[in-house]
Amino acid sequence: MSASLPPRGRGTASNPFNRFAPTQVIATDDGWFQEVPPSAATEVRLETAKSIITRNQSPDLPFDRSINPYRGCEHGCIYCYARPSHAYWDMSPGIDFETKLIAKTNAVALLEQQLSKPGYRCAPINLGANTDPYQPIERQHMLTRKTLEVLLRYRHPVTIVTKGSMILRDLDILTELAKQRLVAVMISLTTLDNQLKCIMEPRAASPAARLRAIGVLREQGIKVGVLCSPMIPMINDMELESLLEKAKQAGAQSASYMFVRLPREVAPLFEEWLHAHYPQRAEHVLSLIRQSRDGELYDSRFGHRFRGEGAFAELIAKRFALAIKRFGLNQRGDFKLDCSQFCPPGGQLALL
Rank of each mutant, 00 (worst) to 15 (best):
F17H: 08
F20Q: 15
R71F: 11
D237P: 03
Q113H: 14
L151D: 02
E272V: 01
H86D: 06
G164M: 09
L115G: 13
A267D: 12
K248W: 05
S51G: 07
L349T: 04
E43P: 00
Q140D: 04
A323Y: 04
V260K: 03
T105P: 10
V108W: 09
K325A: 15
F320Y: 15
A313N: 12
E241S: 12
V150N: 03
K179F: 00
N106H: 09
D299C: 11
S242C: 05
V185T: 11
H141F: 12
M258H: 06
G303F: 04
P118I: 11
P279C: 06
L5H: 11
F33W: 07
F33S: 09
T144D: 13
G346L: 06
A184L: 00
F17G: 10
L115P: 00
L329Y: 02
S39D: 05
D60Y: 14
M166G: 09
G31D: 01
S39A: 14
K336Y: 10
I52C: 09
G164Q: 02
V108S: 14
F327A: 01
Y257K: 06
V150P: 06
P84Y: 00
F306I: 09
F33G: 06
I125W: 03
N18Q: 06
F327S: 11
A317W: 11
T54I: 06
A267L: 15
F320M: 01
N106I: 11
Y79V: 02
P118G: 02
A208V: 00
L148C: 03
Y88W: 01
M234C: 14
F97I: 09
R218N: 12
Q140W: 01
P136I: 00
G333M: 10
P344I: 00
R65W: 01
R65Y: 01
E176H: 03
Q113K: 06
A21E: 14
L101T: 07
P279L: 02
Q114D: 11
K163S: 05
P118Y: 03
H277K: 00
P6M: 02
V25G: 00
S39G: 04
N130P: 00
W32L: 13
E283G: 15
R153Y: 09
P268K: 03
F33T: 08
A49T: 06
E98N: 08
G94W: 09
S39V: 04
F302W: 06
E149L: 03
C122F: 01
E314S: 08
S287H: 09
S14G: 14
T105F: 10
L274M: 05
A178T: 02
P263H: 05
E176K: 14
F97M: 15
A40G: 14
Y88A: 07
C339Q: 01
P62W: 00
